[in-house]
Simulated assay, not measured.
Amino acid sequence: MVSFDDILASNSLINDESGLHVAVFVGGTSGIGKFTIKALVATGITVKIYLVGRRSSKERTQAFIEELHAVNPKAEIVWTEAEVSLLADVKRVCEVIKSKESRLDLLVLTAGYAPFGTRKETAEGHEVVQALEYYSRMLFILHLLPLLGASDHARVVSVLGGGLETTYLIDLDDLDLKKPGNFKVYRARFQYLAMNTITLDKLASENPDITFIHSCPGAVNTGNVRRGWDANSVVGSIFSRVVESMNWLIGFSDDESGQRHLFESTSAAFGGRGVPYTGRAGITTTAQSAGGLFLVSNKCDCTPNAKVVAQLREKGQEKVWDHTEKVLGPYL
């Protein structure tokens, strides 16, 4: 475990020479993305942040942006409207960013929620949570790889469930979980997080100069536990209240969650590039200190989850990648 004091000490070293000049936050209008932006801006550095969010969140986000500017006038927050469950909209936003920037130092992906209730699909035919937590995330990365490659400190952080991968809760023959009875919350959660790890592991091996992190945030009261339930679900209402109460009692505060994810986004503990860190270096899924994917726990420790990831890599990476190319191909 990396102590919170050590995290605060590391984050206090973030300055304009740290190499973090342009960042994109997808899902930064609430929850962990919002907490991390707040922590980043509070460092006082000069930074440009593309804050990507839905039209319905624009009004309340404008108040947040004004708050951020009051804290740090040197931070430029660019509101970027998009419905990121729609891959066509992800492509549109990425083209806008690529037209304005020549490099990107940080890409943070946090959009999503637990898929309780019945299966719901987007207008493009994808299960909504899978679109948010997998397809759109990979599409953002693939579109923005050239900008990330132009940075000396490039980092991609996907917040979902790094380190929790299993081999028995992923169905490689039904990656979209469309078979009758196959869509259940426990399977969907583990399917989507495993697909994140499998693809990020591949991208990290092919782009060793970019630091890739799949983060498990632990218990944080983001409010998203209410989103996945069917409207007017009594069970959903009771469950949401119980989980939110537990998060309040045992989970991380908004501030600590933001600081921990800022640490993951900036510290040289992961890959050797970034804010200097004298503690134990993280290790990748291939047990290296750089040039691969870091699976980071809620305590900011790393695990290679070596046995499981090796099995997923051998048995599932080609299938997942072929499927992903097929789905994302029209939007690249």
Rank of each mutant, 00 (worst) to 15 (best):
V2N: 01
F4Q: 10
L8M: 11
N11S: 02
L20V: 12
H21P: 05
V22A: 06
V26Y: 06
S30V: 13
F35T: 03
L40H: 00
V41F: 04
G44D: 00
I45K: 02
T46N: 15
V47N: 00
L51F: 05
R54C: 09
S57I: 10
E59W: 10
E59H: 11
R60E: 12
Q62W: 09
I65N: 03
E67N: 14
L68S: 02
A70H: 14
V71M: 13
N72W: 07
A75L: 08
I77F: 05
V78S: 08
V78Y: 06
A82P: 02
V84G: 05
V84L: 10
V84Y: 00
L86S: 11
L87V: 10
L87G: 01
C94K: 04
K98E: 15
E101A: 12
R103P: 08
L104M: 12
L104H: 05
L109T: 02
G112C: 11
Y113S: 11
A114V: 15
F116W: 10
F116T: 06
R119Y: 13
R119H: 13
R119T: 12
T122E: 08
G125V: 07
S136K: 01
M138A: 01
L139Q: 04
F140E: 00
H143W: 07
P146N: 08
D152F: 09
A154T: 05
V156F: 03
V159F: 00
G162V: 02
G162S: 07
T166M: 06
T167R: 03
Y168R: 14
L169I: 09
L172P: 00
D174T: 09
L175N: 01
K179G: 08
P180A: 09
P180G: 08
G181R: 08
K184W: 10
R189F: 14
R189D: 12
F190S: 09
Q191L: 06
M195R: 02
N196Y: 00
T197K: 03
I198L: 06
T199K: 01
L200V: 05
L200S: 01
K202F: 14
E206R: 14
D209P: 06
I213P: 00
S215P: 05
S215F: 03
P217V: 08
P217S: 10
G218H: 07
A219S: 13
R226K: 14
R227Q: 11
R227V: 09
W229I: 08
A231D: 13
V235G: 13
G236R: 07
S237F: 12
F239N: 13
G251D: 11
F252I: 08
S257R: 00
G258W: 01
H261S: 09
E264N: 15
S265Y: 04
T266P: 02
T266V: 15
A269W: 04
F270G: 00
G271K: 00
G272V: 06
R273E: 12
G274H: 02
V275W: 02
Y277R: 04
T285N: 07
A290I: 10
G291T: 14
G291D: 14
F294T: 06
C302Y: 07
K307W: 12
V309K: 01
D322A: 15
E325T: 13
K326R: 14
V327Y: 03
L328H: 13
Y331R: 11
Y331M: 11
